[in-house]
Design a protein around this nucleic acid. Structure first.
Length: 475
RNA sequence: GGCACGGUGGCCAAGUGGUAAGGCGGAAGUCUGCAAAACUUCUAUCCGCGGGUUCGAUUCCCGCCCGUGCCUCCA
């Protein structure tokens, strides 16, 4: 049963066949580091992290490149506004991005090249485009001549003439056509600059991805990913640059685009000012909850960020860990656990265009079976328990969640919830002991009083058959 | 205006040419001194609206309405 991927280029789900058997080359557009990354950036990173992990699970040798575009208008602006160098700005946010992604369980790609470290490759690429007549020099600037690339618009399904009539493109005297875009920008005061055959200047946006992808993955490779908002113009221009320079088509065989994270049904973005940084969100929510949330809908659809959705994710994870905790605590015996089929739970759903939502659904179906098993007073055999754990571990390795020690997860949630409560853990313990005595002497009036009192403060008690009482925080 | 994507129960969200996963929530029951948790049952005669194709469509086609995105920096 083959892996199928929805290819933006063809707008169809296609069977995935790599260029070289057993090997996958994948390039994903990373960030422009000029500010704290927000949930939208995290979604892209997490989505492609799962793609990467799953391809590895399937046994492919994956070379995964995710770049940093560390030369850009916004970085320059930030640097000038704050009186530091561009490098200071980009390094600061690259570091922060790396930290947040690590917390979210995002694995480090094979290589994370920086644009500024590939200026020579870009210059070489631009020269190639000029030599092939796809680009022209205008003063000390170099532009890509869009009309020379006949299939321009094939990814975003736009037609050049329709784009022209869009009339939102500013007129630039130096361009032959308003749609032409800059490959090389001449030096201006207060901007970083490099030597080039066309004079001092800096690369335009887009060319870094063409140059770096070909350097690390070759002129043609398997998967190219990024957020949906990059499909035009960024990816369209990348295609034009790469195919225009090599004459090889297609540049990337499968294009995968992840959907946005919305807030109030609107795209979360810097320009709209409605973004929430990952840093901020992680102050409030467990990284696993965030990751679960990001993967709980299919990667291509938009997801709406709301506190309710986050708490929903947390509740779901709690349900999962409660069941797992019961299993951990139970004694072993002779009964065989319900079958946990990796094929059914993981592979069939993920082979269908990385359907993580369905994997989660299957996991919860299993949770019910597991609880049923334990409710029936059965004791799992050592071997079936080990088998289950090994399989679950594989799911965890691909999804990047469901892998914590259940007791640890539950305790962390409790501690966190307690922070915003008025009652202390000691006080709860004291009341539990008092209630135990009351219950022993069948003073149910007092015991119920204590429970109600705690309940009023959001603490819910759970009496177990052996006489002990545990508690949890309910919002 | 052009192009793209989407409209599934109270909310979130999968999915399929043959009759609707899962999570949250709600109702009843089992368990419990009573609860909580768990389990069981129930909670969309129906998948935006109107046509069409078909033995049969939520799933395919056409039209319409609504939402979002891209067309300018953007994951």
């Amino acid at each position: 049963m083959p892996l199928k991927i929805y290819n933006t280029l063809t707008r169809k789900k296609e069977e995935f066949v790599p260029l070289t058997p057993n090997k996958v080359n994948m390039y994903v557009c990373g960030i422009t580091p000029y500010d704290e990354c927000h949930l939208g950036h995290a979604r892209a990173a997490v989505v492609f992290d799962v793609v990467y992990r799953y391809l590895n699970y399937l046994g492919f040798g994956v070379t995964y490149i995710r770049n940093f575009t560390d030369v850009d208008d916004k970085i320059i602006k930030k640097a000038n506004d704050t009186g530091v160098t561009c490098q200071t700005v980009s390094e600061k946010y690259i570091q922060s991005y790396t930290e947040q992604m690590t917390r979210l369980g995002v694995q480090t790609p094979t290589c994370e090249p920086k644009a500024t470290e590939h200026i020579q490759e870009m210059i070489f690429h631009i020269q190639k485009l000029i030599d092939r007549g796809m680009a022209y020099v205008s003063g000390a600037d170099v532009f890509y001549e869009v009309r020379k690339f006949s299939s321009y618009g094939k990814l975003s399904q736009k037609k050049i003439d329709e784009l022209e009539s869009g009339a939102r493109i500013e007129v630039d005297e130096r361009k032959k056509d308003p749609l032409d875009f800059a490959l090389w920008k001449s030096a201006k005061p207060g901007e970083p600059e490099w030597e080039s055959p066309w004079g001092k200047g800096r690369p335009g946006w887009h060319i870094e991805c063409s140059a770096m992808s070909s350097k690390y993955l070759g002129d043609q490779f398997d998967i190219h990913g990024g957020g949906r908002d990059l499909s035009f113009p960024h990816h369209e221009n990348e295609i034009a640059q790469s195919e225009g320079a090599t004459g090889k088509d297609p540049f990337a065989r499968y294009w995968i685009h992840n959907g946005f994270v919305n807030i109030n049904s609107e795209k979360m973005s810097k320009s709209l000012g409605n973004f929430l940084s990952v840093k901020k969100i992680l102050e409030e929510w467990d990284p696993e909850v965030v990751r679960y949330f990001l993967l709980s809908a299919n990667y291509g659809s938009p997801i709406d960020y709301t506190p309710e959705a986050m708490s929903n994710a947390q509740e779901a994870l709690t349900r999962f860990y409660e069941a797992l905790n019961r299993l951990e605590k139970t004694e072993t015996g002779e009964d065989v656990l319900p079958e946990f089929s990796l094929q059914e739970i993981l592979e069939i759903p993920l082979n269908d265009d990385f359907n993580t939502t369905q994997v989660i659904g299957k996991i919860f179906e299993y949770v019910r079976e597991l609880n049923r098993f334990l409710d029936q007073g059965k004791y799992p055999s050592e071997s079936s328990l080990n088998e289950f754990k090994a399989s679950l571990q594989k799911v965890t390795n691909v999804l990047g969640f469901f892998g914590q020690d259940p007791q640890v997860f539950l305790d962390i949630q409790k501690t966190k919830a307690l922070q915003s409560s008025t009652i202390s853990e000691e006080e709860i313990q004291r009341l539990i002991i008092e209630r135990r005595e009351a219950r022993k002497s069948k003073n149910f009036k007092r015991s119920d009083e204590i429970r109600d009192q705690l309940a009023a403060q959001g603490i819910v008690l759970k009496d177990s058959p052996d006489g002990t009482t545990s508690w949890e925080v309910k919002k």
